[in-house]
Design a protein around this nucleic acid. Structure first.
Length: 221
DNA sequence: GGCCAGGACACCA
DNA sequence: TGGTGTCATGGC
């Protein structure tokens, strides 16, 4: 039942918005960096920070280890919280070197559960960031829960008991097929919806999303 | 000029 | 376990 509801919402979103092409990155390590930099930050500002890292040839574990935290901080200033995030990037790069010799294939060769525990042990990687990395960099089927997802489900009256991160995650993963492609698109679409300031269609006056828009960021109706 | 953006961590009760 | 303060830039 809930599965049908979740599938129905997905169909409405994909029909309306189309594929979101997440994650916007060229390689897995860039996904990991972006996942940390986007914490409580607008993606447009993260893009500037990543461009600075690329320009400085610091978009890889080894050069990040060589740079001082203060130097990294200057490069990533545009995305905010740059001092903490610089320490987080440094911690990630050090960890990858020490335990995986910077080999992401080895890191991602693990099963999802041990991989998640490993990622969560790194300073700066919490549940959402870990799951973003597992889904968008390792391409394994875990559902990413973020503030948009919680808010939208809450407004739909679908919040799970307890409202914890894992409860929201189970809601999706227990009621949808374990498909990385689906989870990828679904989460991206929820973010897209959450950012939307929706208004009735200018011609017909109706909601293009069959009233899903009333659960978006703002609604004029 | 205020609000918010694709969170995590430290500290406290 | 749960609540609160902190970290900070940039676009609207």
């Amino acid at each position: 039942m809930i599965g049908e509801t979740l599938s129905h919402i997905y169909q409405q979103l994909i029909n309306h918005y189309g594929p979101q092409h997440w994650w916007p990155a060229e390689e897995p390590f860039e996904v990991m960096v972006g996942a940390i930099l986007t914490q409580a930050a607008a993606w447009v500002n993260v893009e500037k920070a990543i461009a600075n890292l690329r320009q400085a040839k610091a978009l890889a574990p080894e050069p990040l280890r060589r740079l001082e935290v203060a130097q990294i901080a200057q490069l990533i200033r545009p995305c905010g919280y740059y001092n903490v995030k610089a320490a987080k990037l440094k911690a990630l790069a050090s960890w990858l070197g020490e335990y995986y010799q910077d080999n992401l294939d080895r890191l991602f060769a693990q099963d999802t559960e041990p991989l998640r525990r490993q990622l969560l042990s790194v300073f700066g990687i919490g549940q959402e960031t870990a799951d973003s990395i597992i889904l968008y960099a390792a391409n394994k089927p875990v559902f990413v829960i973020d503030a948009y997802t919680r808010r939208i489900l809450s407004r739909l009256g679908l919040s799970p008991a307890g409202s914890s991160y894992s409860a929201y995650q189970r809601l999706f993963m227990d009621n949808l097929p374990a498909d990385a492609r689906l989870f990828n698109e679904y989460h991206a679409l929820l973010v897209r919806l959450g950012k939307t300031t929706c208004r009735p269609h200018p011609l017909c006056g109706e909601c293009c999303l069959n009233n899903l828009c009333q659960f978006a960021k703002n609604s004029t109706r």
